[in-house]
């Protein structure tokens, strides 16, 4: 008997009985077994073999269960670890176990990206779940986004480097000292995070999303939106800083814009021209906004 076999046997014994109940929906033992098989096949297709380590950084979702038992059927070793872990903690575990793949939330990708160059054995980042939370505050946050042709850059690393260098330049322009980022990582001063940027992709387009803290971020807002056990509140966020904390003053919108956009123009050799949405864009914009605001 092994854990892979256990799932198969329960599926035979109780095919129609609910094994997992998630968001009011039941997943039967038979469906569970099939989903585990699908993922096992998928992982096998990527080259995951018996004895390989597969890291799992997920909350208690059906995908955790599929991932854990898919590993068991493959004879691979599941390495589940704390979803609240940050940079150094994740790095140690992935390095120590030599994981070939990690299965995690979309929202954790920037954390993994930052340390990936130190993990030569990590080949695949497999993602699931729409569990990101972005906080926006008139005083403390500013967002820089981009919709860019992939062709502008040599590859994804080049995109991170181009944008990363420009952001560091721009922030220096504002008078900030010692801003740095690592590979595809967050913008930091010392060990504290000042902001972050990451790329998504769709077809031949990269979508850039950057957040920067202008003034201190009040985490109590976070806890009024999602319930977090009080004893782990300080573990939810990385140590943060902001331009105001580093510089002693908060830059105006114009100042920030000028510095960052100026650096982008210089670094990428482009010219930015203030514009608006086209007529075609305007109609779909309304639709997208309505979807996001739907309760």
């Amino acid at each position: 008997m092994n854990l892979g076999r256990l799932v198969e046997e329960r599926a035979k014994e109780y095919p129609k009985k609910a094994a997992l109940i998630y968001e009011g929906k039941a997943i039967s033992f038979e469906e569970l077994n099939k989903n585990v098989n699908r993922l096992a096949n998928g992982l096998k297709g990527l080259g995951i073999e018996r004895g390989d380590r597969v890291a799992i950084m997920l909350p208690n979702t059906p995908e955790f269960v599929y991932s854990f038992f898919a590993c068991q059927k493959l004879g691979a070793i599941a390495v589940p670890f704390n979803t609240m872990y940050k940079g150094g903690e994740i790095l140690h575990i992935l390095k120590d176990c030599g994981a070939k793949a990690i299965i995690t939330l979309n929202s954790a990708v920037p954390l993994i990206n930052e340390i990936k160059p130190d993990l030569p054995r990590l080949q695949y980042i497999i993602t699931t779940g729409e569990r990101s939370l972005t906080f926006a505050d008139p005083e403390s946050t500013v967002f820089l986004q981009g919709v860019l042709s992939k062709g502008i850059f040599k590859d994804l690393d080049d995109a991170y480097k181009g944008i990363g260098e420009a952001l560091v330049q721009g922030l220096q322009e504002l008078g900030l000292q010692g801003v740095w980022y690592k590979h595809r990582g967050s913008l930091r001063i010392g060990e504290k995070k000042l902001g972050g940027f990451y790329f998504s992709e769709i077809k031949d387009i990269y979508i850039l999303n950057m957040i920067c803290f202008l003034a201190p971020f009040d985490p109590s807002d976070l806890f009024s939106v999602i319930w977090v056990p009080p004893e782990v509140k300080d573990k939810v966020l990385e140590p943060l800083t902001s331009i105001q904390e580093e510089l002693g003053r908060r830059p105006s919108d114009e100042e920030f814009k000028e510095a960052i956009l100026g650096a982008l123009e210089k670094e990428l050799g482009i010219q930015l021209k203030e514009g608006t949405l086209t007529r075609d864009e305007k109609s779909s914009y309304k639709k997208y906004k309505a979807v996001a605001k739907r309760k």
Binding site: N106, S107, G129, E130, R131, S132, L133, T134, F135, A136, D137, P138, T141, V142, F143, L144, Q145, G146, V147, L148, S149, I152, D221, V225, I226, D253, K257, I260, L261, L264, I270, L272, A292
Partner: peptide, 20 residues
């Protein structure tokens, strides 16, 4: 190619669809 710079007028949260 487009660059967008945004600052919100009110405090807010953009939540992934699976976040309760």
């Amino acid at each position: 190619d487009t660059i967008i710079i945004q600052r919100v007028a009110k405090k807010g949260v953009l939540a992934g669809s699976e976040v309760v």
